[in-house]
Design a binder for these strands. Structure first.
Lengths: 166, 166
DNA sequence: CGCCGGGACGCAATAATTTTGCGTGCCTGA
DNA sequence: TCAGGCACGCAAAATTATTGCGTCCCGGCG
C-alpha cells in the first residue's frame, strides 16, 4: 500500500483540524465563521482531509461516570516469548476486546501499555485475570488503577507547515 | 451540582451508543436501519443522551502518521509533595498543554500516567524536560516511548441494564 | 374489568445543513 | 504577458435532521 506523503497544511487547516478534534458537531457555517471562510470552502477542506486519510473517523465520546460506575486502569505488560507471532497474537486479543480502550507497544523493560475500562473494581480484577494472567506468554503485569481521569482525549497538535495567504 | 442518577438503558440504547462510539458520522436513517428503528426514533434517543450528558461530545479522530512523523509516549510520574494544591497545579498544567493527550491520577507508587504526542523523538525529550524535569515537585518520571499504537480509542463498554420490549 | 395518562413509535411535513455547479480572482510557471 | 490550476463565494439542489401529530402499548387506578 503506497502511502502518499503527508499533505501540506496551512494555518487555516491547522485551526480547522484543531476545532474538529475538540468538537466535530458544529455546522460548516459555524466553523467557517471561526476560521474566516464560507461554509462551502470549509466543506471542501474537510472532504480533502477525509480523502487524504487525515481524519480517520468521527466518534461520539461518552461520559464514563454517566454510564454508571466505571473503573479505568493502566496496565503495564511484559511478554515472555518475544517472537513476531507472539506479539501478533497479543495485539489481536487487545484489539478485539471491547474493554481494552487503548494499547501501545513500547520501548523498555515493559512491552505494552494497555488502558482498560471496567464496570467495577471486581470486574477490573477479573478482566486482568482473563487478559493477562490466563495468558501463558505474559511474564509479568502491573495494574495502575486510576483514581481520576484528569484529562482524556485523542487530540493531536496540528502543525501549520505553511502560512495561508490572506 | 446535583448529579442525576445514570439513566436506564435498554438493549437498543446499548447498541446505538456502541455504534456512535465507533462512527458518529452515519445518518440517522442508517443508524435506524442497524438497530431496527425509524430515523426520528433514533434522533429522539440521541437527543436524550445529549440532554442526560451521556454523550459528552463529538470529535474527529486524526490519523497521527498522516500529520507527519509523530511520537507517542506514556510517562509515569511521581510527585514529591503530595498536598492537594500540588496536585491541582500539576493537573492544570497537564490539562492546558495540547501535547498532553491524556492524564490519569493513579493508585500505587506512581501518581500519574500521562500520554504525550510529540513531533519527533527530540521534541519528545524536550517536552518531558519542560513538563516534568523543570517541575521541582516531580520526584521522578519514566518515559515509555511507543513503537506502535496497537489500538486507540475512548470507547467504553455500554451495559444494557434493561431489555427492550419488542 | 375498563378507563385513563405517560411514553415511545412511525409517518409525513418542515427546517436546517450539506453538497454541488458556476463564475471570479490570484498565484505560478512558461 | 498569458494560460493553467486552485481555492474561493454565492446560490441552487440534494440530503439530512427536527418537529407535529395520531397511534399503540403498558401500568396504575377506580
Amino acid at each position: 500500500m503506497p502511502e502518499s506523503p503527508p499533505p501540506r497544511l496551512d494555518e487555516i487547516d491547522a485551526l480547522l483540524l484543531d476545532l474538529l478534534q475538540h468538537d466535530a458537531g458544529r455546522t460548516l457555517h459555524d466553523l467557517g465563521e471561526q476560521v474566516g471562510l464560507s461554509a462551502s470552502a470549509v466543506q471542501r477542506r474537510i472532504a480533502r482531509y477525509r480523502k487524504d486519510g487525515l481524519i480517520a473517523r468521527q466518534v461520539a465520546v461518552l461520559a464514563p461516570h454517566r454510564l454508571g460506575p466505571t473503573v479505568l486502569a493502566t496496565v503495564l505488560v511484559t511478554l515472555d516469548q518475544e517472537s513476531f507471532e507472539h506479539h501478533r497474537v497479543f495485539s489481536e486479543r487487545m484489539c478485539s476486546d471491547p474493554q481494552v480502550q487503548q494499547c501501545y507497544r513500547v520501548a523498555g523493560p515493559w512491552d505494552y501499555v494497555v488502558i482498560l475500562a471496567a464496570r467495577s473494581m471486581h470486574d477490573c480484577g477479573r478482566l486482568g485475570d482473563r487478559l493477562f494472567k490466563a495468558d501463558d506468554n505474559v511474564r509479568r503485569y502491573e495494574t495502575l488503577v486510576t483514581f481520576e481521569a484528569v484529562k482524556t482525549g485523542l487530540a493531536l497538535p496540528v502543525p501549520a507547515s505553511q502560512p495561508s495567504r490572506p
